[in-house]
Amino acid sequence: MAFDSFAEFLAMGGHAPYVWSAWGVTALLLLATVWHARAEQRQLLKGLKRRARRANSARGNAQ
């Protein structure tokens, strides 16, 4: 452990704003890309399923 206490860890020896902003932006961007990819996949599948259901019910009505 390079730090003696948690407070010291947060302070980063006076470099806190730089270290935490760089790490924060990186973490935020990584999480945002994952979130975006998940949302994209869900939305696509939802759209496809809706279309399939509509097609199925149309076929059901015709019979």
Binding site: A2, F9, G13, H15, Y18, W23
Partner: peptide, 17 residues
Amino acid sequence: GLAFAPADYQQGNSFRI
């Protein structure tokens, strides 16, 4: 990298970037 790696002798903790 954030908590256990030693600080840099020149740059201190800012090197953790």
